Simulated assay, not measured.
Amino acid sequence: MTGEPTAPRYIVDGGAEATSVLRRLARAGWTTREGFALPETTWDVTDAKLVLFGRVADSDTAELAVLAAARGAGVVAMSDVASDVGRALLADLTRIGPVSTDPDAPVAGESGDGGAGSGPQLAPEQRALLERLAGGETIAAAAAAEFLSLRTANRRIAEAREVLGVRTTREAVLAYLRIRKDS
């Protein structure tokens, strides 16, 4: 995940918002496909720059969307985040990385204001890891304290570096501390 954009993850209310996000993703070079099933034999589809989309109204469809995101596909899910299914979907996708419920949020690969305004959207796991690193813990200790494998913790920190627009973990911790101070 060094220079590759993180697969976008959106949960929006309806078709108009999904269409807006999908158009912007297509302009940024992502391939969009309806439905969340991934028939490819290769587990990691990150390099395909594939975004799957559709309505998520039940737990089976939510499960497929989460699995697709875990395999590296982008996801644009139409679901009510106030519903049980929508809340569960948001929680599960957030464990993988940042999720936007704002259809106007910048998409990966799209030029924008560089994260100004509302600031970068770090996932709770990313914030927890950066908080522990800021407190002086090692990545291994932070991973253990957050009940994550070292490999997953390193992935979350790499995603946080990308979201924050920095190259090193030290820079990510410093950027996180600035964000925390400002909020």
Rank of each mutant, 00 (worst) to 15 (best):
L122T: 04
G109V: 09
V107K: 08
Q121H: 11
T2D: 14
W43N: 06
R87K: 15
I139W: 00
Q121W: 04
S79R: 06
S100Y: 11
G3C: 13
D60R: 14
P103E: 11
D104T: 11
D80M: 11
S183H: 05
A141P: 01
T101G: 13
P124F: 08
A77W: 01
E17Q: 15
L50H: 07
V66G: 01
A57K: 09
R24G: 09
V21I: 04
A68S: 12
E40W: 15
G135I: 04
V85D: 13
D113M: 03
G86F: 02
D60Q: 14
A57C: 00
L129N: 02
G15W: 04
S79M: 05
G112S: 15
A145Y: 01
E4G: 08
A91G: 03
L148S: 00
A88K: 02
G117F: 08
L67M: 10
T42H: 13
L64I: 09
A7R: 02
V76M: 07
A116F: 10
G86W: 03
M78F: 02
V107L: 14
R71H: 08
T46A: 07
S183M: 06
A69R: 05
R24C: 12
D102Y: 03
A82S: 12
L22H: 04
F53Y: 15
L129H: 06
A91P: 00
F147R: 10
A65Y: 06
S183F: 04
E110P: 08
V85A: 14
G35R: 05
G97L: 13
L64P: 01
F147E: 10
G15P: 07
S118T: 08
T42W: 09
T138R: 02
L90T: 02
R170M: 04
A145V: 05
A158P: 01
I11K: 02
R178I: 03
I11M: 02
G112K: 01
D13Q: 10
D13C: 02
G54M: 09
A142P: 03
R155N: 10
A105V: 04
R33N: 01
G86E: 10
I96M: 06
D13L: 12
A153R: 03
L133T: 01
P5I: 02
D113L: 11
A158I: 00
G114D: 06
E125I: 09
E131F: 14
L67V: 14
A141C: 00
R132E: 05
D44R: 14
V21L: 09
Y10G: 13
T42N: 12
I11E: 03
I11T: 02
S183L: 12
A145E: 07
D13Y: 03
A73D: 07
A153H: 01
G35I: 10
T41F: 12
A134N: 10
E131A: 15
G54D: 11
A153F: 07
S118W: 02
T32K: 12
F53A: 12
A48V: 08
S79Y: 03
G72W: 07
F53G: 00
E137P: 04
G136A: 06
R9K: 14
V163N: 06
A68K: 07
